[in-house]
C-alpha cells in the first residue's frame, strides 16, 4: 500500500491515476449518452430503461460509490498536479506565445471544474430533485395499474425552460474542450500510443468529443424546437 501511495504521489503516477479515472468517466459518459438518446424512442422506452437501471438497488449503489471514488480521484489528482505545475512555473513570460498547444489542452482545469459544477447541478436537478422540485417526482401511470418515475417528462419539461437548456448547452461545450484533449491525452499518459497511431489518436479526441457533445446537446435543442414534445397528458 505504501508503494501505491508513493506511486500516486509521483508526477507520472498521479497522471496515470488521472488518466485511468478519466478513462472510466469517458466510458460512463458514453453510456450516459446512449441512455439519453432513448428519449427519441419515446416516453415508454426511456422510462422503462430508467426503471431497469434503478431496479437493482445494490448495483445502483455500487455504481454510485465507484463513480464517486473515480470522480474524486480525477479531481484530486488533477488539482494536485495543477498546483504543482503552477509552482514549477512561478515566473511568467512577458511575451506569451505557444506553438502547437490547443485551447482545450491549455484550459483543462477550468473546463473540468465547470463540468464538475454542472454535474452537481445536473444531479440536483434530475436525481435529487432539489433545484427544480416542480419537475421532480413525476410519475408515469402504467396501463396495467401501478406507476414508475417519469424521467421522460422530467427531462422534456425541464429543457423547455431556456435557462436550464442554456446551462446544459454551455456545460456541454466545456465538456467538448475537456474531452477533445482528454481522450487523446489519456493514451499518451498511459503510454498506449505509437508513432503510427499517434495522428489517429490525436484526431480521435475531437471526433469523440463532437459525437458525445452533439448527441447530448441535441436533446435540449430538439426539446426547445418542439421536435420532442411532452408526453400526452402533460403535467398530472
Amino acid at each position: 500500500m505504501g508503494g501505491f501511495f508513493q506511486f500516486a504521489k509521483s508526477s507520472i503516477g498521479s497522471k496515470v491515476l488521472m488518466a485511468l479515472s478519466g478513462a472510466v468517466l469517458l466510458l460512463w459518459i458514453t453510456g450516459h449518452m446512449l441512455g439519453n438518446l432513448q428519449i427519441y424512442a419515446g416516453q415508454d422506452a426511456l422510462n422503462s430503461y430508467a426503471e431497469k437501471l434503478r431496479s437493482v438497488a445494490v448495483f445502483l449503489y455500487v455504481v454510485r460509490v465507484v463513480m464517486l471514488v473515480i470522480v474524486l480521484t480525477h479531481i484530486v489528482t488533477s488539482v494536485m498536479l495543477w498546483v504543482e505545475n503552477r509552482r514549477a512555473r512561478s515566473s511568467r513570460y512577458a511575451y506569451n506565445n505557444t506553438v502547437q498547444a490547443t485551447v482545450g489542452s491549455r484550459t483543462m482545469i477550468w473546463s473540468g471544474l465547470l463540468v464538475f459544477v454542472f454535474v452537481i447541478y445536473h444531479l440536483a436537478h434530475l436525481t435529487w430533485g432539489q433545484i427544480h422540485p416542480e419537475f421532480a417526482h413525476l410519475v408515469q401511470k402504467l396501463p396495467g395499474g401501478g406507476e414508475r418515475p417519469d424521467v421522460y417528462s422530467m427531462v422534456v419539461l425541464g429543457y423547455q425552460n431556456g435557462l436550464i437548456s442554456g446551462s446544459y448547452i454551455i456545460a456541454m461545450l466545456c465538456l467538448w474542450f475537456h474531452l477533445s484533449h482528454g481522450f487523446s491525452s489519456l493514451f499518451q499518459t498511459l503510454g498506449l500510443t505509437s508513432v503510427k497511431y499517434r495522428p489517429l489518436i490525436e484526431r480521435a479526441g475531437p471526433v469523440f468529443a463532437t459525437i458525445v457533445v452533439a448527441a447530448n446537446i441535441s436533446i435540449p435543442l430538439t426539446v426547445l424546437l418542439g421536435l420532442v414534445k411532452p408526453a400526452v397528458g402533460g403535467l398530472p
Binding site: S10, S11, I12, S14, K15, L81, E84, N85, R87, A88, R89, T98, V99, Q100, A101, T102, S105, R106, M108, H181, S184, S185, Q188, T189
Partner: peptide
C-alpha cells in the same frame, strides 16, 4: 522521475510545446 519531482519541475499535460 523521483529526481525530477524533487527538483520541482512540473508535470506533463500533453500539450507538446516541448516537441515543437
Amino acid at each position: 522521475v523521483a529526481a525530477m519531482d524533487a527538483e520541482g519541475f512540473g508535470n506533463c499535460t500533453n500539450q507538446y510545446e516541448c516537441e515543437a
